[in-house]
């Protein structure tokens, strides 16, 4: 119990004194995960919306596939990205392996299906309500997509949040493609795993506390934003 208290106090000290190593790791984690969510949103939202409003052969199968990809095992994604980016791999010439760029790629692959599947669900629900009205106002199915995305913006924030939550907490893929290199690719989750195995609980606890705080803060921010945002005005 005494050890735990001492480690906890040390963790608190690291946070409050603005330890350079600790905050470097936090910032890198945020940069990697936010980049992955941004790229995942740019790909996943139009993809999800297209699946929601489009009517084409094989659509049902694509929806099932997309839903299945939400449970993509991160370590398998890490392995595949590793094979692609390794020196002998097809994208080896890019020299991205063991860089934050490789971690962004891996996390993007993990979060894109989540964002796309949730977007599809949200937009499809809204489309069921709006379709006749928008058609009556003269909008084509394609022209309806921006309207549906805008009117579903609050729910779509939740989809982004779900993607961010998955990315920031992810460890398997980033450790494979990032290599957990100190000051280069070490992020919160990989550091917690490493430092715990080394018995350096203070740093692990400090990072754990920050990780939890980030998760709670993002959720609270989205809730507050939803409450304060109000309607879009003319």
């Amino acid at each position: 119990m005494g050890t735990f208290t001492s480690e906890f106090l040390q963790a608190l000290h690291l946070i409050v004194t603005g330890d350079g190593d600790l905050w470097g790791i936090v910032l890198l984690s945020l940069w990697v995960s936010l980049s992955a969510v941004a790229v995942g949103a740019a790909i996943g939202m139009p993809m999800g919306a297209a699946l929601a409003v489009g009517r084409f052969p094989g659509r049902r199968a694509l929806v099932v596939l997309l839903n299945a990809l939400m449970g993509l095992p991160p370590v398998v994604v890490g392995l595949c990205v590793y094979l692609l980016l390794s020196r002998a791999g097809p994208l080896g010439v890019l020299g991205l392996l063991y860089t934050p760029g490789a971690m962004v790629i891996a996390q993007t692959i993990i979060v894109t299906p989540i964002i796309a599947a949730l977007t599809r669900q949200i937009v499809e629900g809204l489309d069921a309500e709006y379709a006749e009205q928008l058609k009556s106002l003269g909008l084509s199915r394609l022209a309806s997509v921006p309207v549906l995305l805008w009117d579903g913006r609050r729910a779509l924030l939740t989809a982004l949040l779900a993607g961010f939550g998955r990315a920031i907490a992810e460890v398997g893929a980033v450790i494979i493609v990032g290599g957990n290199i100190n000051h280069v690719t070490r992020v919160m989750t990989t550091t917690i795993a490493l430092e715990t195995s080394k018995g350096n609980l203070a740093l692990a606890l400090a990072l754990g506390a920050i990780l939890i705080t980030i998760a709670i803060s993002v959720t609270a921010a989205v809730s507050l934003l939803g409450a304060r945002q109000g309607p879009a005005h003319a």
């Binding site: 709006y130 006749e132 009205q133 106002l137 009117d151 309607p231 879009a232 005005h233 003319a234």
Partner: peptide, 15 residues
């Protein structure tokens, strides 16, 4: 009535 999730004026502005 199917109203857009916007203000009253924005529903008219949309059209």
């Amino acid at each position: 009535p199917v109203l857009l999730r916007r203000s009253v004026a924005a529903n008219l502005a949309f059209v």
